[in-house]
Design a protein around this nucleic acid. Structure first.
Lengths: 253, 253
DNA sequence: ACTCACGTTCGTAAATACTGAACAGATTTT
DNA sequence: AAAATCTGTTCAGTATTTACGAACGTGAGT
């Protein structure tokens, strides 16, 4: 799962530490970053100057910021996911029909990456932007994916990432997770009842292409609006219709 | 414009060369990349292994691909641009009202970065994804931005990037560009008559916040559909309405 | 069974990145 | 107005680290 390089290029590790700190701090100056990371000013300066030269970081006066060039690479990576272009309009349809938030997630390095999120009329304000990574075991989307991954991969993922609780409802027991995954396989879709965020429910379905999971889609909204038959039947049905359309278009293209 | 670091970290330069090659080749193996970049296999291997360890590159069997983690940084950088959230729904409105392609561009490092593109019913198929970078002098969006940048910055940008022709219509003469920029300032918006792509016309307007350009919006479509009063009056008017809404929301927020 | 292509490991020579101290601007304090 | 204190930046030497070729391991194809 977490393959560490035998001869890692340390400068690259350091660089990402710096860029991620720059993100965390919402931009920072040389001194501020040096203090934060406990590294010499001159070192930080060299890295930032290099990153600016490569145009991956922007310098505004005395503060450095994460640059848009990462969006070039990131959006490229997203477009490489075949399903994305097909799923996008379908999710928009789903969001506007349900009025809630519709999501698309894919697995990478044992975590989930949101490829797309689109809001319906009444949708909750989303916290994480596109590209955000989330644990698989504590989201409906993630569970839908795990349910269709080979068992040894699921084992490996859980071994490596653990099962940290996001809310009191998060599944933190291994056996319980495997039971849940079986239920999801039987049922064809997953529920997420405040397992990731308090007050947020979610219905999710996997996207399969030739028996391989390529991602998952979901609709999420506040618990008080997602309940009874709307939560249990209506939304799942709408979701499965969209799932079907996407799968058809992905498989034959 | 192109500030080269005094003590650049060469490994970082090399890393981006490798990642960008990986993008260009749409994923590649160690040997293929080594041949392409004329570097030893073992070197490439160390870089890719490091990038994978940091989860910025994905390994599928024997080929390495640009990973979605770049999307995390990229989407973050995009969300940092205040105007983005405000402009997004307005552009969607613009696209659906005109049926054409609506765009949002900001300047960074003397180039334009597309932050958002959304298609109306009849919109041309876009070639570049979000995040793509384009020259400023040869696009309507770019010219709209240049027109409101301090003259010395425009000089510096042109000095550094030159004025390469994309089509026969591209402005390649410095004086001609400055004349055009003045026309754009007087008029309040820019035309792009196949200067970037043959057969594609475009109307663009700057977004100003406290007299500073923060970006530009546009509508673009095929020349045969964008002509006469639709091109000269209708679209500009719609564009300026949207510009107005965005500027109001950006300035007071 | 052999070959060929691939990715990977390893040890070392040589390049280079890291560092603290000194420098240069800006801004704030006195 | 001078001084103190921020800021980012430069510099040069050493010690680390990277880059490299050759050898290795693995799997596919013949």
């Amino acid at each position: 799962m977490g393959p560490s390089a035998t001869n890692p290029v340390k400068s690259i590790e350091a660089m990402f530490t710096i860029v991620e700190a720059l993100k965390e701090l919402d931009g920072a100056g040389v001194t501020e970053l040096a203090d934060h990371l406990e590294l010499p000013k001159s070192t930080i300066h060299n890295y930032l100057a290099t990153l600016e030269q490569e145009e991956y970081v922007v310098k505004e006066g005395t503060t450095y910021r994460v640059g848009l060039r990462f969006l070039d690479l990131g959006a490229y990576a997203r477009d490489q996911v075949e399903m994305f272009e097909v799923a996008k309009p379908e999710l928009e349809h789903l969001a506007s029909e349900t009025g809630e938030l519709a999501n698309l997630l894919v697995e990478e390095h044992g975590k989930g990456s949101y490829l797309y999120r689109t809001r319906g009329e009444m949708a909750v304000q989303v916290k994480g932007h596109v590209g955000t990574r989330a644990p698989l075991h504590s989201t409906g989307l993630g569970k839908a994916i795990l349910a269709h991954l080979p068992e040894e991969r699921v084992e490996a993922i859980v071994d490596h990432h653990g099962m940290p609780a996001s809310t009191p409802e998060t599944i933190t027991d291994r056996d319980e997770l495997f039971d849940e995954l079986e239920r999801i396989r039987d049922r064809g879709f997953a529920f997420d009842d405040e397992e990731r965020l308090r007050g947020l429910r979610c219905v999710a379905a996997p996207i399969l292409a030739n028996d391989d999971v390529v991602g998952a889609i979901s609709v999420s909204g506040p618990t008080n609006r997602l309940r009874d038959t709307r939560y249990r039947e209506e939304l799942p049905q709408k979701l499965l219709e969209v799932q079907n359309v996407i799968e058809l278009n992905v498989t034959y293209s």
